[in-house]
């Protein structure tokens, strides 16, 4: 190997070592990595009841007035959640012209998850407020039904399909 070839070989060796060091150094510096994560939450409103069937029976009368004594039921619970703003819960019956009187109201609302509306008379099939002031919250309440009848109403059975809706307030 002549002198010129030796110089070339030496230069190649030096270049190889420098390259190796550069690569190793580059790897050594890359000690972290990033990832972009997006967590998106959509508006969600959910409502449910724990008791699908409620029965009210009027079978007693007042000895003083002679009128039938109203029947009550508080067995049902309503639960809800919303992460939206300014919501309310409404109630509606599908019975457009009931013979007997049915009233409903919310009892024992948990925490500050809403405010009970005044007692609602389900005397038609329109939608009425049940709980108002519901914003970014979850909650629970008892559903209190009161059924009454006049002597003139006679006897019979009525069925209501009651719908609770969480909606914009």
């Amino acid at each position: 190997m002549n002198r010129r070839e030796q110089h070339i070989a030496t230069a190649v060796r030096r270049l190889a070592v420098l390259s190796l060091l550069a690569v190793a150094s580059a790897f050594g510096q890359e000690a972290s990595t990033n990832q972009t994560l997006t967590l998106q939450v959509f508006e969600t409103n959910k409502i449910d009841i724990n008791q699908r069937a409620v029965t009210l029976v009027i079978n007693q009368a007042s000895l003083e007035t002679g009128s039938p004594i109203e029947a009550t039921n508080e067995d049902g619970n309503l639960i809800w959640i919303t992460n939206g703003e300014n919501k309310k819960i409404t109630v509606a019956s599908n019975n457009a012209a009931p013979r007997f009187l049915v009233k409903v109201n919310a009892l024992d609302i948990t925490g500050s998850s809403g405010v009970a509306a005044p007692e609602v008379t389900l005397n038609d099939n329109t939608t009425k407020d049940f709980v108002v002031g519901v914003s970014r919250t979850w909650g629970k309440c008892k559903i209190r039904f009161v059924a009454s009848a006049k002597v003139a109403d006679g006897v019979g059975t009525e069925t209501h399909l009651i719908t609770y809706t969480i909606t914009g307030g």
Binding site: T36, L37, T38, L39, V41, N83, R136, T137
Partner: peptide
């Protein structure tokens, strides 16, 4: 629920 809606970008 109290956190409302929106998007967090991390």
């Amino acid at each position: 629920a109290s956190a409302g809606t929106g998007t967090d970008s991390h």
